[in-house]
Design a protein around this nucleic acid. Structure first.
Lengths: 157, 157
DNA sequence: GTTTGTGCAAATCATTTGCACCGCG
DNA sequence: CGCGGTGCAAATGATTTGCACAAAC
């Protein structure tokens, strides 16, 4: 389906990290990383697992979670909390920093980035005596084309 | 400890909501609401439960969760996700809208509010075709007085 | 060959729920 | 009374972990 496009440099970064940490390069790690780097959207652990359902028994749920954890640790994957009881992830390389708008009706996730907001956040934190290490800004709202939204489960197939 | 200060109007709002929804006014609901309205900080379900540990068996864990749920539904309590695997809450009446800065070292939570950020968020969402229903902005950083921070577990007693 | 990884099933942990009994209205 | 509320213990669901076997180096 998705061609193993420009994931080379990302795969190399991952392998470099594994070597640096004396972790082994296994087929599962390579397959999962390949899949993640070629997915240009937000995904969940469960969703990632499903991607391997066809090649049944290829990669277990525990391993998926363990690999995700390593990649987050490596700084290659960002974890997001969008108010659900499971986490979302997206790979970082090649993606500029951005925040998210989540449609409360259909679940669609749109990215945006506003330099002014970033600057004001920095100011706000510093004025309270904090040094920023990160932030999470999620805007919830309704996208105005629910009836046609391809992400709306109600509109599936 | 905390005097049952200015919680009258808030208790009235809660009772009004219960009546409106044909829900009953029970001693548990009144006690929990009273405790919540007189707590001017962020708390967790578990922490709230602890507040009743002395009057042992007075209120069960299940009831705490059920009452919190009603109060969130009533719009009297706001739910927050600060990246932990449990939720934080704070009561709304008498509290202007604000966002949060969380110290990654000691867990201290500081509130702030920046009208410019709010406006820019609205603009950003609208430019993507969304109508905002809410947002969550959490800034993570380190407060620069860890060694004396009263909220730092390491500094307890 | 060791050490680290994987799969499986069982364990966690916050939160939710089924059910029998209890108390508000 | 009658229905919603409560407590308890068991269920849930995402994520984690212990352990025996396998694969990487």
């Amino acid at each position: 389906m998705i061609p193993p496009d420009d994931t080379k440099s990302e795969m190399e970064a991952f392998e470099a990290y594994l070597k640096e940490k004396n972790l082994k390069i296994t087929s599962q790690r390579m397959l999962v990383a390949q899949k993640i780097f070629s997915t240009h959207s937000h995904f969940t652990a469960e969703g990632l697992l499903d991607e391997f359902k066809d090649q049944r028994d290829l990669i277990s749920k525990a391993t998926i979670y363990r690999i995700i954890s390593i990649m987050v640790e490596a700084g290659l994957l960002q974890e997001h909390d969008f108010g659900k009881d499971y986490k979302y992830y997206e790979h970082i390389i090649g993606h500029e920093h951005h925040d998210h708008i989540i449609c409360v009706q259909c679940g669609r996730i749109v990215e945006f980035m506003d330099k002014n907001i970033e600057d004001l956040q920095k100011q706000a934190a510093e004025s309270k005596g904090f040094q920023i290490t990160g932030h999470s800004l999620n805007i919830y709202g309704s996208c105005n084309n629910i009836s046609v939204c391809e992400f709306n489960p109600a509109n599936k197939k």
